[in-house]
Design a protein around this nucleic acid. Structure first.
Lengths: 606, 606
DNA sequence: TAACTTGACACCTAAGTGTTAATG
DNA sequence: GCCATTAACACTTAGGTGTCAAGT
């Protein structure tokens, strides 16, 4: 497992195409391994990749200008890139590669934790993917969201994670739109796509558009590719969803597993201050002047081995202000002495030391109806939970088709046609994002004027889409109270850095998965193009997305779409506050709320 | 002149509209004085304002969805904002306000200097405008460029600026497209638009897309509003150009005037380390540990008054590592004692002290044909140069209609229809920007593959636009050598953070001005909409833009378009390298260059 | 020489880290 | 006492300042 090669990429997901076997020759793959098609390419540091390029050609076409046909140009590019020459441009078949997979794997084996804070916290490792196989000229919207991985609440006890009850209700999840969206496939493929602007928080009333998670819950990030040149078309387009199981994590407010802490410290440049040298001695940096002060501030931990492994270095006091450092040391130094301390390319520690002691079974700690039946145990045992669907705490992500995590996992692909149940609140969200604001510079806050929000539902019903409102599965109260769809569907908010806190601008998203790295339905060809304005039937209840999915993406091989979680409704109390049960009523609540706010707002335009 | 109110905005430019007098009622102006329409609005710090909102509605319209008509929604917004209720949406009439005008004025009175470095330097004060009067739903492209203010080279001698010869040849100027472009008027108006990503450099072979300036030359930033939803349409659209005379500056590699240095230090947060307290005593910060080291590093200046005005503060050593500090102190402390030291809102020093000594006349220093005749003198005397058009070193910006700078200056508006001479190289530039790359994160550099660039000229000529090529007025060689159109037109490069260094993707831009803050031609109404593909005659030579301009925007009141600088051709030698004289030949050079590169490129796709 | 340019540098802002102690 | 949360803090990266000595 010791893989020092840490230069970035990992395995690419390459679906097998029986009907179009030559569309993705290996040459394309080789280029994908390059950091860029043009090694010499330079990009201004802060430039916005925006639609300029794409627009230029689109406009040229619109204007009847032949700025040298796309094919000609594409051929040109192709020859420059060393691409194959028979690739057609019209079709696409995206291959997505998780960057820094090795690092993700390391975390995953231990049990990844992500800190969530009130002010928002980035993910580490960063969620970063490399994409290939897009239509260079087509426009795509790239999205990311984070879904609950199961119905459990966890606790870290005796050095291992264990189930601590049923999951707390989820806040409406936000669908994070990559800020460069929409952009051409060419732009997306030019360099890895990062989502480091997506921040995690546990602040229920977050106004920044961050993703709100529950602490001590397990989550699974997802990545979506939508071929669409416009955000509004999203509800009518095919979502290609990619799940990298190794990016699963448990949200925490403070790190529980010291191994995770150490892994973060060793790999996150911002935590370099807490880093040890890999040579068995602590790294001592320019903490000369402050060292005495810090040594003075060593109250709690009596661990004196903080200097025990500090043999030969310069006469500085040991680095780091941590007092729990020795804990990490004791555990880490078992196998870290032989690795030099690379900076951004740190050596990777083998994950040989398994969980220390697997003692007691699941224990109910969080007060929520504990009806424990199975113990997911250590999150790193993900691949061992294959037949756990009967467990009380069942995964919402079907990983049954995944190979051994050690050998490299496949991303799980879900392809959905027109998830129509997204439509309504989706459009609401889009209406929200039609606000001003939206500029790059300065941390100027933006609250949404509720009055403006009210217009869109009205517009929807006016156009005969009122029934779509029934698909809204969640609502966010103005004061931060919220509910979730329960174990069923998740309410989603669109978010491109745009906070959508004041209204239930949500849309449910089927989270059923088709784990089909090698399967491909003939229907997918048709699904490849976005379906605009398709008059899809509106599901009257939540969690019907899987049906739509199954119709669009029939299962094949050993992968069948996960049965949609039963749409069981349950009364949700969130932090002692009972939340509405009926989505219809919830929606009406929204509307009433909006109307009231609208009245207030126009009354006092201040 | 003492204006402690420094909360942001300054005077707004409000053109007088005889034919539409009520379009911009005062209420809109009042809201413009607010930092934001919604004080409670929050925007995520790093969010990209991009086209999401606009696209949503555009797509809705396209889809036949009535997401509540624009008017209805606009009315909604209007009532919320306290806007007038009779404003029509279809028309626009932008009002542009320079932010931090007071600060700009302070600099301008002294004679603003901007440092240019090889690695690129921001402007300070930042160029930041607030916009009103746009069509909320229409899309706009906002641009900025920096043009030479006159034909002079300057030197700072005896504490004042004086002409030191004829201007050096200019590098092709880059038209900086605001990265959020295109965006809706609503988005642009929501918050001030900053151009801090525009960086100044003196590096001729800059690859970052920075604006290349000549040191010791005077420049005038310009701001452009173009109603267009696509970059490619730019050449066919009306440019509304706004010039704020107080933003004029002289580019320097090191500050010449200590007063400017002090003003920068006092106002730029990044220079806080060199700041004094406003109480007549130096500010001493946490430089305790390093103070002895720094005192040791005080070699040159024997100025001992560094501690002379350090009466009562805590027992720290004086701040700042500078040795010339005392110089600034001596000059600054004459009028700075009464002002507290606000942080980001520093108090403003009265600019009472005039130039110390206006001694010798213009002197030739730079080697370029010095034929001195008039001395612009201190740049702060801009408003006194009204009838200087006969001067050898004449302004290229007509400021004759400007009121006293002290009373607040008007921005100068130029409105151009379809500057067709931009078209060719403009399209070239656009073709350039159709490359991949273009992403937000990471400082990955981008060089343009020349092979791809070649396609566009061919496409142009194929569509009967070959003659437009004659309008190209400049060329950038591959090795960084360049030429300019001389004192006449400027070649421009489009730049949205996209470097266009490798090819002569330039387009000339008429710099004739209509200084018409109070004038309005009836033709302007028609000019308000973008003219697409209009078959404008192609000027066969450089510097004919003013004719086109005059036709489109007739002068009125006391403001007549500045007579275009005589299209005198002169041989340009740049750093000892003779540059071509004939624009046609220059273009052919480009084409040859491109062809050659294309051949090379396709031959060796590596 | 004098004027101008350059790069290393100390100092700053801004924001991403884990640590720590206090809190509930 | 345990567990989970939180804010202050020291440390980091990244990059924007003017200063200064040396170069052109």
């Amino acid at each position: 497992m010791r893989d020092p090669v840490f230069t970035g990429t990992a395995m690419a997901y390459q679906p097998f195409h029986a009907h179009r076997p030559v569309e993705f020759p290996v040459s394309a793959f080789l280029s994908a391994a390059q950091p860029s098609f043009f090694p010499a390419l330079t990009l201004p540091p802060g430039s916005l990749g925006k639609p300029i390029a794409e627009q230029a050609f689109a406009a040229a076409a619109e204007a009847g200008l032949n700025t040298l046909g796309h094919h000609q140009q594409a051929a040109h590019l192709r020859s420059l890139k060393g691409f194959e020459s028979a690739e057609e441009e019209a079709e696409d078949d995206p291959k997505v590669t998780l960057e820094a997979k090795e690092l993700w794997d390391q975390f995953h084996k231990i049990g990844t934790e992500m800190v969530i804070t009130k002010s928002g916290r980035r993910m580490f490792p960063p969620f970063k993917v490399r994409i290939n196989g897009l239509d260079k000229k087509a426009k795509y919207i790239l999205l990311m969201d984070i879904m609950a991985a199961d119905d459990c609440r966890y606790k870290f006890h005796n050095s291992r994670w264990m189930v601590a009850g049923k999951a707390d209700p989820e806040m409406p999840k936000r669908m994070y739109i990559h800020p460069d969206s929409p952009a051409s496939g060419e732009q997306w493929m030019a360099k890895p796509v990062t989502f480091h602007k997506l921040k995690l928080t546990n602040n229920m009333s977050d106004k920044h558009g961050f993703t709100i998670l529950n602490s001590m819950h397990k989550y699974q990030p997802r990545f979506h590719i939508v071929r669409a040149n416009d955000i509004l078309k999203l509800p009518y387009c095919t979502f290609r969803t990619y799940v990298f199981p190794e990016t699963e994590f448990i949200a925490v407010t403070a790190y529980q597993n010291d191994k995770i802490t150490q892994l973060k410290i060793d790999n996150n440049p911002f935590a370099k201050g807490f880093r040890d040298t890999g040579n068995g001695r602590r790294e001592k940096r320019k903490q000369l002047t402050l060292a005495p002060l810090r040594a003075f501030a060593d109250p709690d931990g009596g661990e004196s081995d903080a200097s025990s492994c500090d043999p030969g270095a310069a006469g500085d006091s040991p680095a780091g202000s941590g007092t729990t450092r020795s804990q990490r040391d004791a555990r880490t130094h078992t196998d870290s002495d032989q690795e030099p301390d690379h900076l951004e390319n740190p050596s990777v520690r083998p994950s040989s030391p398994g969980p220390r002691s697997p003692p007691s079974g699941p224990r109910s700690v969080g007060g929520a109806n504990p009806s424990k039946k199975g113990d997911p145990g250590n999150p790193s045992d993900l691949t061992q939970q294959k037949d756990q669907s009967d467990s009380r705490c069942r995964n919402r992500v079907d990983h049954r088709t995944l190979g051994s995590t050690e050998g490299g996992s496949y991303p799980v692909l879900l392809q959905m046609d027109s998830p129509s149940h997204l439509s309504t609140a989706h459009l609401q969200a889009l209406a929200l994002s039609s606000l001003p604001g939206q500029s790059l510079y300065g941390p100027q806050p933006l609250f949404l004027p509720p009055g403006q929000l009210a217009v869109t539902p009205g517009g929807l019903s006016a156009m005969g889409m009122g029934q779509l409102l029934a698909s809204v599965s969640g609502v966010t109260g103005l004061g931060g109270s919220a509910l979730s769809g329960g174990p069923c569907g998740f309410p989603w908010q669109l978010s491109q850095g745009i906070p959508l806190p004041a209204l239930g601008a949500l849309f449910s998203h089927p989270y059923a998965y088709m784990a089909a790295p090698l399967s491909r339905s003939p229907l997918l060809g048709a699904a490849r193009s976005c379906l605009h304005y398709s008059p899809y039937p509106v599901p009257g209840a939540l969690c019907q997305g899987a049906g739509t999915l199954a119709r669009t993406v029939p299962a094949s091989r050993d992968t069948s779409p996960v049965a949609p979680p039963t749409p069981e409704r349950h009364t949700v109390t969130y932090r002692g506050k009972a939340l509405p049960k009926d989505p219809i009523n919830e929606l009406q609540s929204i509307q009433k709320l909006v109307s009231g706010l609208e009245g207030q707002r126009s009354a006092s335009p201040k």
